[in-house]
Amino acid sequence: MSKIPISPMLVQYLVGLCCLKWHPDDVTVTIGDPVDDPAAGKARDVDVTVTVRRPDGETHAFKAYEVKHENKPLDVAVIEQLTLKLNDMSSVTHKAVVSASGFTDGAKAKAKHHGVTLFEIRPWIRPLQEQFPALTMTGTADECFPTSSVMLCWVDWRLQFVSAQAKAAFSIRADDALVNKAGKKHGIYKTFGAFTDELLFRSTGILFSLEPASTLARTFPVPYPSDEHQVGAGPAWPHTHTLDVRGDGVFVKTGEGRVQIEAITISGSLQWQREQGALYYVMEDVVTGDAFAGALIANKPRQGNMVALVLTPDSREIRIQFVTLTPEQRNFINGLTLTR
């Protein structure tokens, strides 16, 4: 079974999205404490609790365990720790642990002893008729729900930046650290490369509805790629866009001292591109193999932005869910779950 080739943040996203099948207005996601990782020899992994209060009064709690070594199944020690945490939640009537990397036989036995249900998030490859009969569809999720996304992208771009405080020319590399006005590590963008990624997305987020991008999108349909590893592209056109970034409070250290980046000009070409496919995942009961819920995640390259379709085995209803995190929220989650 192949493992999930996605950022660790998607584990709690998927569990939260799947739990929307019960009560979308009463789903709570809480970042937990570090969990001792026997393989690493220290507390380095984080559990995320998804709590659902159903209309019938039952409360379900799911411990979504985000491991940094996704190829290793959860073992007895981790299940023991998570079970103790679940037992401390006195109001919970149903307890579960969710993994994206499976469980050892010992972990399964320990969970059964404590009455804890185990779920695994897996690539959604089984035919829909086997787990989602209410949909009355035949075939796999990607066959029944083919997807593609079209985005405005910068290609062959270069940057020019303005700093009125700079007394001499200076250069910035992608891995150079960014600081705030006080000279401390920047709270959102750790490196200039991360800041550049944000600015490229910010720029196309402004330009996509303006001319000439909007006319070119209507005039030249973006072709579909021939396979999932290719990108379909429309014609490119030269463009320049200047962004005022004083509000980001980004400073860099130079030989002349600390200076603020006030504006950045992006020069290059813009192009509409189409990527085929989405991420298809199902949350399954490890013992029975029954599906809890399935989710189709739009393949968006910007972390913290997703569009998802959520399906359940006992209903034909398909929920459309939008997820958008601010840079501050993304940084907060990253600080808790992605530090290695």
Score class of each variant (00 low, 15 high):
Arg44Asp: 07
Arg44Gln: 12
Asp45Cys: 12
Asp45Ser: 13
Asp45Arg: 14
Val46Phe: 03
Asp47Glu: 09
Asp47Phe: 09
Val48Thr: 13
Thr51Met: 14
Thr51His: 05
Thr51Gly: 07
Arg53Glu: 01
Arg53His: 09
Arg53Pro: 01
Arg54Met: 08
Arg54Gly: 05
Arg54Ala: 07
Arg54Pro: 07
Pro55Trp: 03
Pro55Thr: 03
Asp56Ala: 01
Asp56Thr: 01
Asp56Lys: 01
Glu58Gly: 11
Glu58Tyr: 02
Glu58Asp: 14
Thr59Ala: 03
Thr59Leu: 09
Thr59Ser: 00
His60Ile: 01
His60Ala: 08
Ala61Leu: 02
Ala61Lys: 01
Phe62Ala: 00
Phe62Ser: 00
Lys63Ala: 15
Lys63Tyr: 09
Lys63Pro: 02
Lys63His: 13
Tyr65Arg: 11
Tyr65Met: 15
Glu66Trp: 11
Val67Tyr: 09
Val67Leu: 07
Lys68Arg: 10
Lys68Val: 13
His69Ile: 03
Glu70Cys: 10
Glu70Gly: 11
Glu70His: 15
Lys72Ser: 08
Lys72Trp: 10
Lys72Leu: 12
Lys72Asp: 10
Lys72Arg: 15
Pro73Ser: 00
Leu74His: 06
Ala77Leu: 08
Val78Ile: 15
Val78Phe: 15
Val78Thr: 15
Ile79Leu: 01
Ile79Asp: 00
Ile79Arg: 04
Ile79Gln: 02
Glu80Trp: 05
Gln81Tyr: 07
Leu82Arg: 05
Leu82Val: 05
Leu82Phe: 04
Thr83Asp: 10
Leu84Ile: 12
Leu84Ala: 12
Leu84Phe: 11
Leu84Tyr: 10
Leu84Met: 12
Leu84Thr: 12
Lys85Asn: 12
Lys85Ala: 09
Lys85Cys: 08
Leu86Cys: 02
Leu86Gln: 04
Leu86Ile: 07
Leu86Tyr: 11
Asn87Met: 15
Asn87Leu: 15
Asn87His: 05
Asp88Phe: 13
Ser90Cys: 11
Ser90Gln: 06
Ser90Lys: 08
Ser91Glu: 03
Val92Trp: 01
His94Ile: 02
His94Lys: 14
His94Asp: 11
Ala96Pro: 13
Ala96Thr: 00
Ala96Glu: 01
Ala96Asn: 13
Ala96Asp: 06
Val97Pro: 04
Val97Trp: 02
Val97His: 03
Val98Trp: 00
Ser99Pro: 00
Ser99Arg: 00
Gly102Ala: 01
Gly102Glu: 02
Phe103Trp: 07
Phe103Ile: 06
Phe103Ser: 04
Thr104Cys: 06
Thr104Tyr: 05
Asp105Gln: 10
Asp105Ser: 13
Gly106Asn: 12
Gly106Pro: 11
Ala107Cys: 14
Ala107Glu: 02
Ala107Tyr: 06
Lys108Asn: 14
Lys108Phe: 08
Ala109Lys: 11
Ala109Asp: 13
Ala109Trp: 08
Lys110Ser: 12
Lys110Ala: 05
Ala111Trp: 04
Lys112Asp: 10
Lys112Ser: 12
Lys112Gly: 15
Lys112Gln: 14
His113Gln: 15
His114Arg: 08
His114Tyr: 12
His114Ala: 14
Gly115Ala: 08
Gly115Val: 02
Val116Ile: 03
Thr117Val: 14
Thr117His: 07
Thr117Ile: 05
